[in-house]
Amino acid sequence: MAENARVIVVTSGKGGVGKTTTTANVGTALAALDKKIALVDADIGLRNLDLALGLENRIVYDMVDVVEGRAKLRQALIRDKHTQNLALLPAAQTRDKSAVSVAQMQQVVQELKEEGFDFIFIDCPAGIEQGFKNATAGATEAIVVTNPEMASVRDADRIIGLLEAQGLHSPQLVVNRLRPEMVKNQEMLSVQDVQDVLGSGVKLLGIVPDDKDIITSTNRGEPAALVKESMAGQAYRNIAHRLLGEEVPFLDLEVRTSFLENLKKLFAVRR
């Protein structure tokens, strides 16, 4: 079988910025475009990607079982229930990051490549320790997820430096949880601000608005990328197209406040 999978690590440094959500949604959106996708949950001990996909009840074997020879890779891979082309390799929940070595991770990625996937996404744990080293070991591309917020941009900058040191150059940036109305009111960093401080070495891959659909779809275990009307879902579908080399304009998240609204605000303040 052809072994030309793109192996992409999804990372951020800081926790809680949306790595797992991004992995689940971009993977799902690409699978819907007829690509064969494997998602690897590299967050050993803090398994979450299964929840984002609604596959938590189907796990029999996990990555550590594969690494330690208790299961074959194919036995551990769980086929997604929404899209035929998507498979999940779950993390172990009862072990820790030291259960997998860099060499073992590379071996798992190699075996996944031999399965003929088009894309292999590795959902990286937060932090810069062993888990990060493992998750990046087998990757040839990187997506850095950040929020328009100081701590997560700072951590993204650190992660970009560490990726560089691992030979993962020019990572692609996803700015997640943007609140356009706050940016407009000068209360939140804009995407341009984030790009300005991170520098030109980072290419913008996507802008995902803060959207309650992400919460409700995660509640259901059904990625927002499958929800047609969802803004965040649309943003993730656009990212999928961009990863395939298509030029897709960024979502128009401009908030248009009318003159009348501003007048109202004005008098509310002046009261």
Partner: peptide, 21 residues
């Protein structure tokens, strides 16, 4: 304010602090 802008932009403060750090 009529045009929807405010003087105290925490966005600007955040960007400056971030640049420095």
């Amino acid at each position: 304010r009529l045009l929807g802008r405010t003087d105290a932009s925490t966005r600007g403060i955040a960007k400056d602090r971030l640049r420095l750090v």
